[in-house]
Design a protein around this nucleic acid. Structure first.
Length: 927
RNA sequence: GGGCUAGUAGCUCAGCUGGCUAGAGCACACGACUGAUAAUCGUGAGGUCGGAGGUUCAAGUCCUCCCUGGCCCA
């Protein structure tokens, strides 16, 4: 007879190969059908404990990249694990919808048509565009197996959100944080518009290059008293002579040595490192160093402006270098970024004498009304006239141009709105709040602290169309601005119905409260501010527009989780907005992840051609593998992604899947309600497996708690490979296959496997979202519709048995030595499979008692047919790692049992079954 | 240039407050099995712990400098 039919071999429909790219969509469909998402969103609602992770909104433009996938998957893993721990975890995904990139895309699409369109029309186009991408990205996120409130996400362009954004602005105004200041921006005088960095193109341009003397007018510092009575001339160099009328300072580098050079009877001041090159340029051969000094001795002293009756202050700044010029940098705070920042520091006026059309304002002395293109020669001529011009030549260099009209642009200060860092003590309060937040990893605290500590006032003005307007009105007559909270709230309330489009569609008189008059002059006609808000302000108010607004959420929330660039972005703007309006941070904890890099650690970019898209991974390996990548890596640092990594993960996935499949196969027909054995009846090996499982459960739970998912991946994978597949399950086969179904041996094994599979499936569910549910569907017993509706395994502390594990640890050491000698025997063709062997051992005292105690089980544990313990093994081989252990392999005694494949002397004893051992014969009769 | 941060086998990770010949899994090589079979088991070969100094009886682990990356600023 064919004894194979009498064995309990595994049986399952669960496929070995997942074919994830095809299977996942089916599982998604199934979830859709059972309404899983909705159930999850309200799960544990009554539990009294909630965990709110507030989603940072991705920008609604373009397909998802790996950064998005990493971020959302991490959030999803956290939410799933918290939900399985019994927390109420509503998750509202969001999108950032306003802003320049979308406006630019729409511009491009519209082309010339845009000129005939009103701002309101353009905004409608932008809205449509953003809406389309929200839809696309939403589907792409869902394909990754990310659960959430996809039916009702938050959009920063929704009517309520825009209303709340305007309200938050009003709150800051009420609290005195809002003020109007000047700041230089790129400006195209031809298009009469501000340009963002993205709209600036750099191209070669020819400019005058001039060296100009600024005579020093204050008393000489003591260090230079030897020059008393002589006139020092600070020499500046510039390629934009037209900015000379706006000069208010001369900046030196505090770290560099400076010198006074005596040349052609004049004393010139410049950086020591530039003397040679400057003298050469000026054509001076005869010169000498009259003095050397540190820049700091001149800080806040003055030179006289060469053209005007005013001073030019000497200041210090790190941005001054020896790359070009003289080391004395002409500073016009209204016309340069560095100039602006250093100017703020020294309290210089942000002076801009240039109007929107690129002309000097009429009130500017000497040059008033002149067009800038005529200004360069005019300024040079005047400088020459007053004897301040040392040298003039032409230079070709890279210069910013307008992307649309291709003409050179200028940098010029305009009036803009700011949220002040000192007003209302915002900086101080924000820093204090930073210290109350838990930053994970902890260095996040230093990172954001240093940024907030050193940042300038927050410029919230953007000269654009697609965004929430800065809801300030100006008196038509006297220019007074209505930026008090009252009118701003009145306007914001109107957005609730219509969105902020109404600002662009209606007249100021319709938007302001009836009867509004100018508090200064009493006039009753107003104009509207045309600037819109920085998009960082939009997303920065989400704590109010989403978390406070929705009744099932609250603020501050438990966690914000974004890439580490958001210390300067969303974490930062949210903090400032929330502290500015509410005096507290909007989050209790902030977790950051690193950036996705290619296999060599370089950023992914189109030009490098090293981009891996989520879509490609999903198509080739499945979303599950992408999720596993997220979990397998320590994301706190930057993480690399290459094909080898994906291949390895795919292999690891198969290992886990196969372990589950094998367990499922052996649980065919198992009914936990009737087939489980009581704990007291469990065989020792099974108790060992469950003890190991309890350790795994503990480790995994702690890792979820600390958001250390790579620990989980390694722990689960090692458990499946080492503890289960290579040891426990391998040994179990014999018992499992050959024991009678009714026997406690068989039932004990299945009880253990059932508990193992149940626990593992629950533990991997947050990561292997699809596969865990697939396993779940195939598992016996009464259970929830989806593993995601179930909880984590109960604590298994009571199953932990340290002593048992220690004993097995010893046995495993011996087992490893046995494997080695078996391998040798195999190489010498003495045996094939290990059951063909009998192993003789001479054991050292350290393990002697233990092994004698286990002598009966040793053949099973070693998967050989016989083990004999002998006192003296003269011809045995020494063990490699265990001193005193000697081993010898011989062919097993007896014949091979046709049923269980063990060799036994009892084969042939049973006349009814002459080809099987008596253990198998007994098993057959027990059936 | 500044703030923060990283560099342990081909890949992903362990190595706590310094202490045995630096570990694991996967990949790789070789072998076994054919009752987990495009699976499973076994054995083996892989690392001057980014580099150079230093402290110490002893350093992957502490200190200094350097190199190569990343993010954010300038």
């Amino acid at each position: 007879m064919d004894y194979k039919d009498t064995l309990n071999l595994p049986q399952t429909d669960f496929p070995m190969r997942a074919n994830l790219p095809n299977r996942e969509p089916q599982i998604l469909q199934h979830w859709e059908e059972i309404g899983l998402n909705d159930k999850l969103e309200s799960a544990n609602k009554e539990s009294g404990k909630s965990f709110i992770l507030h989603d940072g909104p991705p920008y609604a433009n373009g397909h998802l990249h790996m950064g998005h996938a990493l971020n959302k998957t991490l959030k999803d893993i956290i939410i799933k694990s918290k939900r399985m721990q019994g927390f109420f975890t509503p998750y509202v995904p969001g999108w950032d919808c306003h802003g320049l990139p979308i406006e630019l895309m729409v511009d491009k699409k519209l082309g010339k048509k845009k000129r005939e369109m009103s701002k309101a029309d353009v905004r409608r186009e932008c809205r449509e565009y953003a809406k389309e991408w929200v839809q696309i990205q939403s589907e792409e996120f869902q394909r990754l197996g990310i659960f959430g409130n996809w039916k009702d996400p938050y959009l920063t362009m929704s009517t309520h959100y825009e209303a709340q954004t305007a309200r938050e602005l009003a709150k800051l105004a009420e609290r005195g944080s809002l003020f109007k200041g000047k700041k230089p921006i790129h400006w195209c005088s031809s298009c009469v518009t501000a340009l963002a960095e993205a709209e600036v193109e750099y191209a070669d341009h020819s400019s005058p290059s001039i060296f100009v003397k600024f005579p020093y007018v204050d008393a000489l510092p003591a260090e230079l008293s030897q020059l008393e009575g002589k006139t020092l001339n600070f020499v500046i160099w510039t390629t934009t002579p037209w900015t000379i009328p706006a000069n208010l300072g001369i900046c030196l580098n505090p770290e560099l040595p400076y010198v006074v050079v005596e040349a052609s009877g004049e004393l010139l001041v410049l950086a020591e490192g530039l003397v040679e090159s400057v003298m050469k340029t000026l054509g001076v051969e005869d010169f000498s160093i009259a003095a050397t000094f540190e820049a700091a001795i001149f800080e806040k002293k003055n030179c006289k402006h060469p053209l005007y009756e005013r001073n030019s202050k000497i200041i210090l700044g790190d941005h001054v270098t020896l790359e070009a010029g003289t080391g004395c940098v002409h500073t016009a705070p209204g016309h340069g970024q560095d100039d602006y920042i250093v100017g703020l520091k020294y309290g210089l006026e942000i002076f801009n004498p240039v109007d929107d059309y690129g002309r000097y304002r009429d009130d500017l002395e000497i040059f008033g009304g002149m067009k800038l293109k005529d200004a360069n020669p005019a300024v040079c001529e005047k400088l020459e006239e007053v004897g301040a011009l040392l040298k003039q030549s032409e230079i070709s260099h890279s210069y910013p141009h307008c992307w649309r009209c291709k003409k050179p642009i200028i940098f010029r200060a305009t009036e803009q709105w700011f949220v002040g860092m000192e007003q209302n003590d915002l900086r101080k309060k924000a820093l204090a709040e930073i210290d109350k937040v838990e930053w994970i990893p902890s260095w996040g605290r230093d990172r954001i602290y240093n940024m907030v500590e050193g940042r300038p006032d927050w410029c919230i003005s953007r000269q654009r169309s697609w965004g929430v307007p800065i809801t300030v009105a100006y008196c038509e007559k006297c220019g007074e601005d209505l930026c008090d909270g009252e009118t701003m709230h009145y306007i914001a309330d109107q957005f609730e119905e219509t969105g902020s489009d109404v600002w662009f569609e209606k007249d100021a008189s319709e938007l302001l409260p009836p009867g509004t008059t100018c508090p200064k002059c009493g006039h009753d006609k107003f104009t509207k501010e045309t600037d819109i808000l920085d998009v960082w302000f939009d997303s920065g108010v989400s704590h109010a527009a989403v978390c406070e607004y929705r009744d099932y959420l609250h603020s501050p929330v438990d966690l914000y989780l974004e890439g580490s660039d958001q210390h300067r972005g969303w974490f930062h703007s949210s903090l400032l907005e929330s502290v500015g309006s509410r005096d507290r941070a909007p989050y209790k904890a902030v977790l950051t992840h690193g950036f996705v890099l290619d296999k060599d650690g370089r950023p992914m970019s189109k030009s490098l051609g090293n981009v891996i898209k989520p879509e490609e991974i999903i198509k080739k390996y499945g979303a599950e593998i992408l999720r596993m990548w997220v979990a397998a890596t320590d994301y706190r640092d930057d993480i690399r992604l290459g094909n080898e990594t994906l291949q390895r993960l795919s292999d690891a996935y198969r290992r886990i899947r196969n372990t589950a499949r094998y367990l499922l196969g052996n649980l065919a027909g198992f009914d936990p309600a009737t087939d489980m054995v009581a704990d007291s009846e469990l065989l020792e090996l099974d108790r060992w497996a469950l003890s190991k499982l309890s350790g795994l459960v503990k480790k995994v739970e702690q890792a979820y708690e600390k958001y250390e998912f790579h620990v989980i991946y390694h722990a689960v994978h090692n458990f499946c490979s080492i503890d289960l597949s290579a040891f426990y399950l391998d040994i179990l086969k014999d018992r499992l296959y050959t024991s009678p179904k009714s026997s406690v041996e068989y039932r004990s094994a299945r009880t253990s496997m059932y508990l193992l599979l149940d626990a593992i499936t629950r533990m991997i569910a947050p990561v292997l979202t699809f596969t865990a549910d697939e396993i779940w569907q195939g598992m016996p017993g009464e259970r929830e519709d989806s593993v995601h509706l179930a909880g984590f395994p109960e604590t298994m502390e009571q199953r932990y048995d340290a002593e048992l594990e220690a004993r097995y640890g010893q046995i495993q050491k011996v087992r490893a030595e046995v494997s080695k000698v078996l391998e040798k025997a195999r190489a010498e063709k003495q045996i094939g499979q290990s059951l063909e062997a009998k192993v003789s051992l001479q054991v050292p005292e350290s393990v002697k008692t233990l092994l004698e105690e286990y002598s009966e089980q040793l053949p099973s544990l070693f998967i050989v047919s016989q083990v004999e313990l002998v006192d003296e093994l003269a011809d045995g081989a020494d063990a490699e790692q265990l001193a005193g252990l000697k081993l010898k392999v011989q062919p097993a005694d007896g014949e091979k049992c046709e049923r269980c494949w063990n060799f036994a002397t009892s084969v042939g004893e049973n006349s009814e079954h002459p080809s099987i051992c008596n253990r198998c014969a007994a098993a057959l009769s027990a059936e």
